[in-house]
Amino acid sequence: MDSLVVLVLCLSCLLLLSLWRQSSGRGKLPPGPTPLPVIGNILQIGIKDISKSLTNLSKVYGPVFTLYFGLKPIVVLHGYEAVKEALIDLGEEFSGRGIFPLAERANRGFGIVFSNGKKWKEIRRFSLMTLRNFGMGKRSIEDRVQEEARCLVEELRKTKASPCDPTFILGCAPCNVICSIIFHKRFDYKDQQFLNLMEKLNENIKILSSPWIQICNNFSPIIDYFPGTHNKLLKNVAFMKSYILEKVKEHQESMDMNNPQDFIDCFLMKMEKEKHNQPSEFTIESLENTAVDLFGAGTETTSTTLRYALLLLLKHPEVTAKVQEEIERVIGRNRSPCMQDRSHMPYTDAVVHEVQRYIDLLPTSLPHAVTCDIKFRNYLIPKGTTILISLTSVLHDNKEFPNPEMFDPHHFLDEGGNFKKSKYFMPFSAGKRICVGEALAGMELFLFLTSILQNFNLKSLVDPKNLDTTPVVNGFASVPPFYQLCFIPV
């Protein structure tokens, strides 16, 4: 009986604490739906499609509103004006990374994606500088992407125009580009180590996009005490870190300090320079996690976009025909596509942009946080508050993009057929937390897609009208449904 009384008292205290925290903070924060004790607004949000729920709530509470995930307040920004004001106009104040408990377990605050403060700034600055020195957006990395595009075309030829699921092959190409940047090595598509790495990356994007992960991140005790797919994700990350550590040891034994070959060499050189400046942010643990982040951000996002792009091109054969006509006119058949071609191919450029806009790969991006107490639109948001960005509300804005739910390359073309930029184009987020590999991803999408369409016609196994382009999961990332196609050599 005594234990029951204690339990009831504990629960009562928890409920009172929950109510007090919510009521004391709500006077400062933007308005929002009334949260339930302990669980907050979790029942009012469709976990399978958070973005749709945010759109519905914005119609009631406006472009800036507050939700509670458990006891934790989260300020939501919906629509271009609110997102721009926060991420661009007040970029420094909104540059923090929001709480992501599962990532905390995986990387302990290291790396480039989930770190904060001085650690994040130094690692991000170093990573950007190193990638630029190796030619991100310049010639040397373009050579690597072109080489991988040629290998991709050869792998597709091996399908002999038979029906195939493109998931694996389209994942190999961007993964190999990242391998060449980090390890100075590309792998054969049949290499077992490479296959294991690909498998872990593919599993992780599916797990991260599941409703279960949303629950884990908002009720963090689940991570330590409950079984579930989150444990598989943590094991996959541990596998990748151990693999990278092996490569780091190989580099330490063979590195030429006067001739760095890749990202690992550059990081080890930085560690050597910083060894007298303790404590340094440049450690082996930081290198492991930064490399894992580059793999995660640079492989599955690009391969998922490529997979979605081919599905949309199957669905819209008239678009595919126009792209192939432009390829034939500008590039021809006797040389590989290059980035200089893009400025002469406005329709193809528009298609690449429209694919990214339409699929809305990361509907709410990753959570941000404010780095200080900030007054925002007459609300006071306390330091450390998590900020949720609705990228969907920007990419699918119906004023900027008429009929935003329709796939239409003319969203990025003017009346004369010239490519038209849009400030609403934010597939990689915006501001200080914009994806480090934005330029690389854009290069890969253009070169891989043009190389495929230069060499193959795409054949659907069903009537294009019957192809479903609805994402199968739409949590962290929008993942396309399973499909097969035939690559018919031109």
Rank of each mutant, 00 (worst) to 15 (best):
D2V: 13
S3A: 11
C10G: 14
L11T: 15
C13V: 14
S23Q: 14
G25W: 14
R26F: 15
L36Y: 15
L43N: 10
D49Y: 02
I50F: 13
I50K: 05
S53D: 13
L54M: 06
K59T: 15
V60Y: 09
Y61T: 01
P63C: 10
Y68R: 12
Y68P: 00
H78Y: 10
G79D: 04
L90G: 09
E92C: 07
G98S: 10
I99C: 12
P101T: 10
E104Y: 11
K118V: 10
K119M: 14
W120A: 07
L131A: 03
F134E: 14
G135F: 12
M136Y: 15
I141T: 04
R150V: 09
R150Y: 05
E154V: 06
E154T: 09
R157S: 09
K158R: 08
K158W: 03
D165G: 00
T167M: 05
I169R: 02
G171P: 02
C175F: 15
I178S: 03
Y189E: 00
K190S: 11
Q193L: 09
F194L: 12
N196K: 15
E199A: 13
I205P: 04
P211E: 06
Q214S: 15
I215G: 03
I215K: 02
N217T: 10
N218F: 14
P227G: 09
K235I: 06
F239V: 13
F239A: 15
F239W: 15
Y243C: 08
H251F: 03
H251S: 06
M255V: 10
F263R: 03
F263D: 02
L268H: 04
K270S: 09
M271L: 07
E272V: 13
K275E: 10
N277L: 14
Q278P: 14
S280Q: 07
S286L: 11
S286A: 14
L287A: 05
T299K: 03
T299S: 13
T301Y: 13
S303E: 04
L306A: 02
Y308P: 00
L314E: 01
V319P: 03
K322D: 08
E328W: 11
R329M: 15
R333S: 15
P337T: 06
D341K: 02
P346T: 04
Y347E: 02
Y347T: 01
T348V: 07
A350Y: 01
V355G: 00
Q356V: 11
R357M: 01
Y358A: 04
S365K: 03
A369F: 04
T371H: 10
T371V: 08
L380S: 14
T386H: 09
I387L: 08
L391M: 11
L391K: 10
T392E: 07
E400R: 02
E400K: 02
M406L: 11
M406D: 14
D408E: 06
P409T: 04
H410A: 11
F412K: 00
Y424N: 11
F425L: 03
F428A: 05
F428W: 07
G431A: 05
A441V: 09
G442Y: 05
L447Y: 07
L449R: 01
T450L: 03
S451A: 10
I452E: 00
N455D: 06
F456A: 00
V462Y: 08
N466R: 08
P471T: 03
V472A: 09
G475K: 08
S478L: 09
S478K: 12
V490R: 13
